[in-house]
């Protein structure tokens, strides 16, 4: 893998799972929106999700999820790509722009600060609240000695 593959993978994964409204609000703070050409306009499609027999065994098809994908090129030739959950051309467009900008060494830090870090922080915060709510429902059952055994 090329050196920046790991960071691109993380970025694309965060962008794919973000909610459209959250992503649009963060992108709203990006100062000068770059010009671009479409290589592939946003397109809705399906990905077949697979599970494993018994959780760890051989794969089987569980059902599909909706995904939007697109590809675009910035003026400097950088190509941005998006595969994002749901049906949203807007979300895919922002994700592809962020992917393209993130590959530019001069913009990478700004993409991180403006978009990726807040997305990661929001996801972590949501997860922490959910985990604390769930932990409050932890139960210890006692087994009672039954009459006939006494």
């Amino acid at each position: 893998m090329p050196p920046n593959t790991e960071s691109r993978k993380r970025a694309m994964s965060l962008l794919a799972q973000a909610e459209e409204a959250t992503l649009a609000a963060l992108w709203g703070r990006w100062p000068a929106k770059p010009a671009f050409d479409w290589l592939r306009r946003p397109e809705f499609g399906l990905v077949m999700t697979r599970g494993r027999m018994g959780g760890t065994g051989v794969a089987f098809n569980l059902g599909e999820i909706t995904v939007t994908r697109c590809a675009l090129r910035l003026a400097d030739g950088t190509v941005g790509l998006a595969y994002v959950q749901g049906r949203s051309a807007r979300k895919a467009e922002i994700a592809a722009l962020a992917d393209a900008l993130g590959q530019d060494p001069h913009q990478r830090e700004r993409v991180e600060q403006t978009i990726l870090a807040p997305l990661a922080a929001k996801m972590a915060a949501d997860r922490d609240v959910a985990a604390a709510e769930t932990a409050a429902t932890r139960v210890d059952f006692y087994t009672m000695v039954r009459g006939e055994d006494v």
């Binding site: 399906l46 990905v47 999700t49 697979r50 794969a59 098809n61 599909e64």
Partner: peptide, 9 residues
């Protein structure tokens, strides 16, 4: 259209 299959969850 179907874009592909996922890795098993």
């Amino acid at each position: 259209p179907r874009f592909g299959g996922s890795e098993p969850i």
